[in-house]
């Protein structure tokens, strides 16, 4: 049935969008978060001005609702992907949202690691890089993974809005083929699929969190 094909393709679009933005989010947002932590923690390399500037940027961008962010970013999207429509274009605002969410979560999580551990690292004669890599990050890892699990689920939610820029995905399908055609059955079915996706993400997240709790 054609509808099954559409369903399969939309599923693939959602997974693709979320995975790629998550990856970009972890790479860029994770680094940003570590940087923010690095420059605001006594014992490491506190640089108050740099921290204030970066922090302000991250916080203000975060406060823009996702759907408005998508529209505001159209010029940038066009510049990067050559178009403002399509799955690849939808990844631009989705990645930015991921970067901002992950940066904030990373910084906050790193901060939950007891400060005494930094002092301990310094007393061993460790440099700040070693302290972050071998002391702070391993301790923060379980919580970071838990946070990432939540963020991934949020990104799945955001991806549902990709339809507004022709981005496809399950959300788009649910609205165009389900809601707008009064096909409640299809809508319900897609919701079920999304539910299963979220459950799967949570299960994987929980497993990984526990795996890294005691390394």
């Amino acid at each position: 049935m054609a509808i099954l094909n559409l369903l399969a393709y939309s599923f693939y679009e959602t997974i693709f969008m979320v995975s790629l933005s998550l990856f970009i989010g972890v790479m860029v947002g994770g680094s940003l978060g570590i940087l923010l932590y690095y420059h605001s923690t006594p014992g490491l390399k506190p640089r108050p001005l740099l921290y204030k500037a970066l922090g302000f940027m991250v916080n203000s961008l975060r406060s823009i609702p996702y759907i408005i962010l998508t529209v505001l970013l159209i010029p940038l999207t066009r510049f990067i992907t050559g178009s403002s429509i399509g799955t690849l274009s939808a990844i631009v605002p989705l990645s930015l949202a991921a970067i901002l969410l992950i940066a904030r979560a990373t910084e906050d999580t790193l901060r939950t690691v007891p400060k005494g551990l930094i002092e301990m690292g310094l007393s061993l004669g460790a440099d700040p890089l070693f302290i972050i890599k071998k002391i702070i990050l391993p301790e923060a890892l379980p919580t970071l993974i838990a946070e990432l699990t939540n963020i991934t689920i949020i990104l799945v939610g955001f991806s549902a809005m990709a339809g507004t820029v022709g981005g496809g995905g399950l959300g788009d399908l649910a609205i165009r083929y389900g809601y707008q055609r009064y096909d409640t059955v299809l809508m319900a079915f897609i919701v079920l699929i999304l539910l299963l996706i979220v459950q799967a993400i949570q299960a994987v997240g929980k497993y990984l969190t526990n795996y890294f709790r005691y390394q």
Partner: peptide, 23 residues
Amino acid sequence: SLRNQRKKIGVVFQNYNLLQSKS
């Protein structure tokens, strides 16, 4: 150089400061 010297000086803390995630 200070870091090198610190490698010869051990510190024991009141709240141990152990890595909970490591053996």
